[in-house]
Design a protein around this nucleic acid. Structure first.
Length: 105
DNA sequence: GTTATGACCCAAA
DNA sequence: GTTTGGGCCATAA
């Protein structure tokens, strides 16, 4: 059931600590869906407002912000991350070497 | 059941 | 570290 995958993805995203970011592939793998990174994004898009999932802590491989493209948060994500202590690079990019979340254990 | 699209990832240049 | 091309899975029409 697809709904079950959403629960897993939510659980993984919820594990992301403040001031850290994770990539879709990382989440997909941790959620038990290797190679289904796209589905993670699709799930986040289907996430309800009361899901309590910090989707703004989820970025793509290059640490770039991935929004839906339709002026949806257009920088809201950046603001939220900055609020949590995440530092952005010159062109709206994050230094994954420092801020990429390490589930490690 | 098939076609088309998507908040992506990986390997190579 | 960034960009280009190819590929995987799931949802929608």
């Amino acid at each position: 059931m697809a709904n079950d995958n959403i629960s897993k993805i939510e659980a993984v995203v919820r594990r992301i600590p403040a001031g850290k970011v994770a990539t879709y592939g990382q989440i997909a793998t941790l959620a038990g869906l290797p190679g289904n990174a796209r589905q993670v994004g699709a799930v986040l898009g289907n996430l309800p407002d009361d899901s309590g999932v910090p989707w703004h802590r989820v970025v793509n491989s290059l640490g770039r912000i991935s929004e839906r493209g339709s002026g949806t948060s257009e920088g809201l994500q950046r603001h939220e991350l900055l609020f949590e202590g995440v530092v952005f690079s010159d062109s709206e990019r994050i230094d994954l070497s420092v801020y990429q979340w390490k589930h490690k254990k």
